[in-house]
């Protein structure tokens, strides 16, 4: 079962070209605009640089929603048409989500701690806005920063994956309405707004011992919803 699930994970990794292309375009754009042009500008003594430049690592996050949409909507039928069973697809897609969230987090950390730090050292290039600085994940070093980013991305990818999987049925649209309603209702009442803020604060800015388990458990619970969705899904 695990071997088959891993096959599904690898097949999905090889077949999300659109996600890779869009992410690559975003990455190349940021690298060119913010790094290459910045280096040229500094070398030529031109004062055209903003004070803060965006880290290229941010663009890798594009891969998360794109992959989470493509796998359940486009790849599912193709996987079944190769003879996969629904149980294998369920576990295989979970493995895929873990690997993608882990890979994006790892590469992002490497870019931040190697590339961005080097640019930061050349003061005249401006300050680089790195992910872990924004969310406060870098306080305890790169390993914890990796884990915190991974946990958040895992939650994000499973959430979008599950929502995409549900979208062809009425309950997918109901889920959209419920999510929008929660945000609207929670924003109108002060006490509820505080709860909503606390929730987002925990999954984004919370301290590692809270943020990591919260995101992982919530992600796993949301992913479990895929089980009945997969069972009901017509091929």
């Amino acid at each position: 079962m695990l071997k088959k699930a891993w096959t599904i994970a690898t097949v999905n990794m090889k077949n999300i070209h659109a996600a890779y292309i869009v992410t690559a375009i975003g990455f190349v754009y940021i690298v060119f605009v913010h790094y290459v042009l910045a280096v040229i500008a500094v070398a030529k003594g031109m004062d055209i640089l903003p004070n803060t430049i965006l880290s290229a690592a941010w663009t890798l996050w594009l891969l998360i929603p794109l992959a989470a949409i493509l796998v359940p909507t486009r790849n599912f039928n193709r996987t079944i048409n190769l003879g996969a069973k629904r149980n294998s697809v369920f576990i295989g897609s979970l493995m895929f989500n873990v690997v993608v969230a882990g890979a994006v987090s790892l590469v992002s950390i490497l870019i931040s701690y190697v590339g961005d730090k080097a640019i930061d050292k050349v003061g005249s290039l401006g300050h680089v806005l790195v992910i872990q600085d924004v969310f406060g994940w870098g306080t305890h070093g790169p390993v914890v920063a990796f884990l915190q980013q991974f946990a958040f991305l895992f939650l994000a990818i499973t959430f979008i994956h599950t929502l995409s999987a549900a979208h062809r049925k009425w309950y997918g649209l109901v889920a959209d309405v419920v999510i929008i309603a929660i945000i609207v209702v929670f924003n109108t009442k002060t006490t509820l707004r505080a709860d909503l803020t606390r929730f987002f604060h925990t999954i984004l800015f919370g301290s590692a011992p809270w943020q990591i388990p919260t995101c992982l458990i919530l992600g796993a619970v949301i992913y479990a919803v895929n089980k009945p969705l997969l069972t009901a899904k017509a091929i």
Partner: peptide, 19 residues
């Protein structure tokens, strides 16, 4: 049915691992 746009050998290899 739709299939992944993989090589014939890859499709057979994948089907072998999935079935």
């Amino acid at each position: 049915g739709t299939q992944f746009n993989m090589r014939v050998s890859e499709l057979i290899d994948t089907a072998c691992r999935l079935q």
